[in-house]
Design a protein around this nucleic acid. Structure first.
Lengths: 141, 141
DNA sequence: GCACATCATATGCGGGCGCCTATCGTTTCG
DNA sequence: CGAAACGATAGGCGCCCGCATATGATGTGC
């Protein structure tokens, strides 16, 4: 029988809350919303063709993503150009400036986020992150 | 320099989403809300004196917790008795039936939740959970 | 060619949550 | 005693989200 332990969600949820609270001021300082940052990260890492695909990738509703894209485009962080092959589609791409912003935000976030893992030894911290990356990479397939 | 990796939140958040989606039908089957289950778990593990303290413990707003407590009390899962020493306070405690429900729900949840960790080997899965427990226990202090 | 699917976009609805305020009973402290 | 603090409760406000739906432009298959 498994030893008694809290549910995974009961342990992960407070962690996520803490991380979000940590990120909000950083995002605000860079004048990007959480969704905006999420979009920039996705576009920077993996090219996405349609907006619907992007919405699904970041777990957002396709009707709610439009405002975010408008803001990002207005700020010059992404481009939305009509696809010559399928003129219904707007091809999404991150601009050089968008990339810069994304990297700057990520740098700030990652500089602080390990503070939620202070309970772990440096070695355990590395292990924890490695396992998380493994889980995430497996989902992509 | 640290190797490039996604933010912790970007990896943890989808995991939490997946877990919540997994839990919802289970909670519904046992006729408990997510907040209700959270309350039962907290009361079962660590005695909490005031409702405000409980709200803080589960990260809920104190004005939103009352309805949840009403439901739990009505269902006979918790007791709310006035504290003889301080008649402003309602002492909260889980009932025997509440304990049964909590355990049943937890059993069902834990039976399914490791499915989100299928990317990990059994050994890595154990390690991951162990590290999570360590993080959580450190927060209690 | 025409019906149907697809994509981006816009809008409205309902629910839940955080936050803030008010009230009432009670306790504590000066 | 009187003022301030505290706990439980209640209600309202504004925000954001998921969901459903509409529409207009376009593409695809029969």
């Amino acid at each position: 029988m498994a030893t008694e332990r809290p549910d995974l969600a009961a342990m992960l949820y407070p962690l996520v809350r803490e991380l979000i609270a940590l990120e909000l001021p950083i995002l605000a300082a860079h004048e990007v919303s959480m969704w905006g940052y999420s979009v920039l990260s996705t576009l920077d890492d993996t090219p996405v063709r349609t907006q619907a695909a992007l919405a699904q990738a970041i777990g957002a509703d396709k009707s709610r993503i439009i405002g975010t894209l408008d803001e990002l485009q207005q700020a010059g962080l992404i481009d939305r150009t009509p696809d010559p092959d399928d003129r219904r589609v707007r091809l999404l791409s991150i601009t050089a400036q968008g990339r810069r912003v994304r990297r700057a935000v990520r740098k700030d976030i990652q500089a602080r986020e390990e503070s939620v893992l202070t309970a772990l030894s440096p070695a355990d911290r590395k292990t924890f992150i490695r396992l998380l990356v493994e889980i995430r990479n497996a989902k992509d397939s």
